[in-house]
């Protein structure tokens, strides 16, 4: 049986002129911002770019930026996709606390570390799934749906740790937070691998496009035959998974699960990283590497403030001032100022 097709002449569309990737990357406002922040750090502290080899690993302020930025970068990887669907996940900070608490409590009770790690990741997946169900099945607005776990999750973590900081000396958990691979801190390695994998998965499969479609117009996505609900479930579950990894890193870093403070307010840093990375809170187009870059900009600022010797009262003021500058640089207004766009009225 032959299906009717439109009588169509194949056309030879000239291949679209693509911008040279390196040039277009280097002129992105995010890259310029990161370089600027790093240069300011260098001006404040001349040894900023010095990297030495010590105890089988790289050592230096730049490495610190990568290492300290990794947890937020990992959160941002998951958050990017959630935001691309026009959602938001406020619970990731709390999920970090739950994940760390789960792993720490299990190992201190004699459970083998690999099992504890898997259990922690599983709790992250469950937390994400829970958010996804609230958003898709119960159709609660994402900001409210995830607020539930943001509030309750920290309490849950406190229940698991019984309110104390559960310290451990398990080598595997500590390795996740402080170990190194090829001279790079483990958190950096994990963040890089996750970034590459996640980017490959969304861009080599159709997942990325379908996520963007759901974010741009959920109703149209349904009419076009997309399984929007399943996509949302996947995206929230993945965000929970990313949060669990971050939680393990943060716990391993201090060799303890601090249910009260682990991941506190990091959901906001992650959202900010995503926004700095150019993904709109209105959903749609997203870029995982750019969000990771956003996380690094935030961390470069934090590290810069630390080594600058400014009084801590200035921390938040400096940080918000820099963020405003970056966001203004990215705004349509400055885009108009930089290149003259032809006005396009109908």
């Amino acid at each position: 049986m032959t299906r009717p097709t439109v009588d169509l002449r194949p056309t030879t569309q000239p291949p679209l002129p693509r911008q040279r990737p390196i040039t277009s990357f280097l002129t992105k406002p995010q890259v310029i911002a990161l370089v600027a922040v790093l240069l300011v750090n260098w001006a404040l502290f001349p040894g900023f770019f010095t990297i030495t080899w010590q105890d089988g690993r790289f050592f230096g302020s730049l490495i610190d930026v990568l290492n300290r930025g990794a947890p937020v970068a990992i959160l941002a990887i998951g958050m990017t996709m959630v935001i691309a669907t026009k959602g938001v996940d406020l619970s990731v900070g709390a999920v970090m606390a739950i994940s760390g608490a789960t792993a720490a409590t299990l190992v201190t009770n004699g459970i083998p570390a690999p099992t504890a790690v898997l259990a922690a990741l599983a709790t992250g997946l469950l937390c994400g799934l829970w958010n996804g169900i609230l958003v898709t099945v119960l159709e609660i607005q994402p900001i409210i749906a995830t607020l539930v776990l943001m509030v309750a999750g920290r309490g849950l973590a406190q229940l698991i740790t019984e309110g104390t900081i559960v310290t451990f000396s398990d080598p595997l958990l500590i390795f996740i937070g402080t170990g190194s691979f090829l001279g790079l801190p483990m958190p950096v390695v994990i963040a890089l691998v996750l970034m590459v994998l996640a980017t490959l998965i969304v861009r080599r499969t159709a997942l990325g496009l379908l996520i963007e479609a759901v974010g741009v117009n959920r109703s149209a996505a349904r009419f076009a035959g997309l399984k929007a609900g399943t996509l949302l479930l996947i995206v929230y579950t993945f965000a929970g998974f990313c949060a669990a990894i971050s939680g393990l890193i943060v716990a391993g870093d201090i060799r303890g699960a601090d249910a009260n403070n682990a991941g506190l307010w990091l959901e906001l840093d992650a959202i900010l990283a995503v926004v700095i990375g150019g993904t709109s809170l209105m959903g749609g187009r997203f870029s995982i590497p750019m969000a990771v870059l956003g996380a690094m900009i935030i961390q470069a600022m934090n590290t810069g403030i630390l080594i600058s010797g400014f009084s801590p009262e200035f921390n938040l003021v400096v940080k918000s001032a820099v963020i405003i500058v970056i966001l203004v640089l990215q705004s349509p207004l400055s885009a108009r100022l930089f290149r003259r766009l032809p006005g396009a009225p109908k």
């Binding site: 159709a206 379908l210 149209a220 009419f223």
Partner: peptide
Amino acid sequence: LDGIFGDLSVRENIIIALQAKLGW
């Protein structure tokens, strides 16, 4: 409201249903 994906490209708007049908 139910048809176009305003921010997506013309190309993506044309292939989206086929892509959804083909799977991820």
